[in-house]
């Protein structure tokens, strides 16, 4: 080893704070925390549902508490960020080739947003939200 090895002074835990680009990357990655947490809440909801009406309605009431509403607002914000960031990388993740040329990224991303709006409206409509 050389006498003065070059050591990059980059923090292993805070490296992403150095650049907006890295921070956006990390923001995208930590959406998984809220998605995982929400999936666990769904499991809990199914458990309560299987335990009968009283248990399920107690579960809904707990979600309507200030803490429950705050949790859902945070999850909603991260879920929207996940949706946008997921759609925005689709041209890289699955480029579509027709003949010799590739479909432009904007079309692929736009199609995802369009489908997302239709699916969201369909879910809300079928669920009786309106």
């Amino acid at each position: 080893m050389s006498r003065k090895p070059y050591v990059r002074e980059v923090s292993k835990t805070r490296w992403f704070l150095r650049q907006p680009r890295y921070m956006r990357y990390m923001m995208r990655e930590v959406t998984c925390l809220s998605i995982g947490a929400y999936a666990l809440v769904l499991v809990l909801g199914i458990k309560r549902l299987s335990e009968g009406r009283a248990a399920y309605e107690g579960f809904l009431q707990a979600l309507a508490s200030p803490g429950g509403i705050l949790f859902h607002l945070v999850v909603l914000a991260f879920a929207l960020y996940h949706t946008a960031s997921w759609f925005n990388v689709t041209p890289k993740a699955m480029p579509v080739q027709i003949g010799e040329s590739f479909v432009s990224g904007g079309v692929i991303v736009g199609a995802h947003y369009g489908a997302w709006i239709v699916i969201s409206l369909a879910v809300l409509l079928l669920a009786g939200a309106f």
Binding site: I35, Y38, H72, V75, L76, A79, L80, H82, T83, W86, F87, H112, A115, W116, I119, S120, V123, L124
Partner: peptide, 9 residues
């Protein structure tokens, strides 16, 4: 999750 999570929440 990208397609349905926001609507579910």
């Amino acid at each position: 999750t990208a397609f349905i999570m926001p609507a579910l929440v």
